[in-house]
Computed example of a mutant assay.
Amino acid sequence: MKNQLLTFIVCLFCLSCATNPFTGKKTMAFMPNTQLLPMAFAEYDKFLSEHKVIKGTPDAEMITRVGQRISVSAERWLDANNHQGYLKDYKWEYNLVDDKAVNAWCMPGGKIVFYTGILPIAKNEAAIAAIMGHEVAHALANHGQQRMSAGMIQQGVGVGVAMATKDKSASEQNMWMQAFAVGSSVGGMLPFSRAHETEADQIGLYLTAIAGYDPDEASLLWERMKANSGGKSPPEFLSTHPSNDSRIANLRALAAKAKEEARKFGVTSFR
């Protein structure tokens, strides 16, 4: 039974891999977009119905303007790299929601929300573009789909561990299950998540620059984010995100590469 479960997981992994054009990597995709996107769109509509959406203000118009520019830059990059039609099922939408949380997100399929709480830290449109690019990049690189697939694998392997230790005492089985939970999280899921954040920083910065926004603003934004947090954060190996200092250093290093990428599209000056 254990071998059958392992064989099933391996086969599922092999049959469900796809190459992502933004990263060039094979990615897990146990749930196809034909199922995932309708679910995401429904959840997005439900979220909007339960929150105060701000319309017609300069800030709301800025969110839409920046979002449209980032989505156009993604389309330009994909077309230039022979990936026409990759976004055919996307239904872009950009909304500003009245909420003090310092947050923004993009669901699979291009459904974006900015919370008003992040605007004072962003301070300017170029920083909004850096945030927008990062969140859109998560969707473009199918990070949500991959995390869902990884969670399914983690759950499946957990069942295997439980089956393999079912003849042991309750305390010993519990010890094995706890060891698996910690090991799979610290050694697997958390590094997986941090890698996604770093990928989204790079992809997002390229999109930001192609859209004509200054990529140097991204590291300055994260300096402000660090200050806003009071410098408090868990150790990086226990976090879903890179540390603030790691992220700032990485964004500084990536800015020149993002400008170089933008020049391929005729963009030589930045807002």
Results as ranks from 00 to 15, higher is better:
G188W: 03
N228L: 07
R224S: 07
A170F: 09
Q173N: 12
S233Y: 10
A129L: 07
D214L: 04
S219N: 03
S171L: 09
G230V: 04
S171R: 12
S149F: 00
T240N: 07
K123W: 05
A150W: 09
G212S: 06
Q155G: 13
G187M: 07
S229A: 15
G109T: 04
D98K: 14
K226R: 15
D167N: 15
G133Q: 03
V186D: 00
M163C: 04
K232S: 13
A127G: 08
W105D: 02
K100I: 09
D214Q: 04
H196V: 00
G204F: 03
N124Q: 12
N142F: 11
M152K: 02
A200G: 08
S169H: 01
I153N: 03
A150H: 10
K166H: 08
I153A: 09
N142G: 01
Q173C: 04
L190E: 00
K232I: 12
I121G: 05
P191K: 05
G230R: 05
L140D: 02
H241M: 09
H134G: 03
P120F: 02
G117V: 05
F192L: 09
G230L: 02
R194F: 07
I112W: 02
I121E: 07
I153P: 03
K111H: 08
S184F: 00
Q155L: 14
K168L: 15
A227Y: 01
R224W: 01
G144N: 12
A137E: 04
S184C: 06
G160C: 13
I131R: 09
T165I: 11
S193H: 06
A181E: 05
L96Q: 04
K100L: 06
R194E: 08
G133K: 10
S219G: 05
T208N: 10
A209Y: 02
G144W: 00
S233T: 10
L221T: 05
E236Q: 13
E223Y: 01
W176M: 15
L119M: 15
T208S: 07
G188Q: 01
G231I: 11
N228Y: 11
N142Q: 14
A139V: 11
P234I: 10
P120M: 01
E125F: 06
K166I: 15
Y206M: 13
R147E: 03
A129G: 06
P191S: 05
Y213C: 07
V159S: 06
G160Y: 11
Q154E: 12
H134V: 10
R194N: 02
K111Q: 04
M189I: 11
A164W: 00
A181T: 15
A139S: 14
G151P: 05
G160E: 02
M107W: 06
T198H: 08
I203L: 05
M107P: 00
K168S: 11
M132E: 07
E223K: 14
A137P: 01
V157M: 14
G158R: 00
P120R: 08
Y94F: 15
G231L: 11
W176I: 07
G231E: 07
D201Q: 02
L221S: 08
I128C: 12
F237C: 05
H134A: 04
K226S: 14
M175D: 13
D216W: 08
Q154D: 13
E172Q: 14
K123V: 12
Y115Q: 12
V159F: 09
M163A: 15
S193K: 06
A195G: 12
L190K: 04
T116Y: 11
V159A: 14
D216G: 13
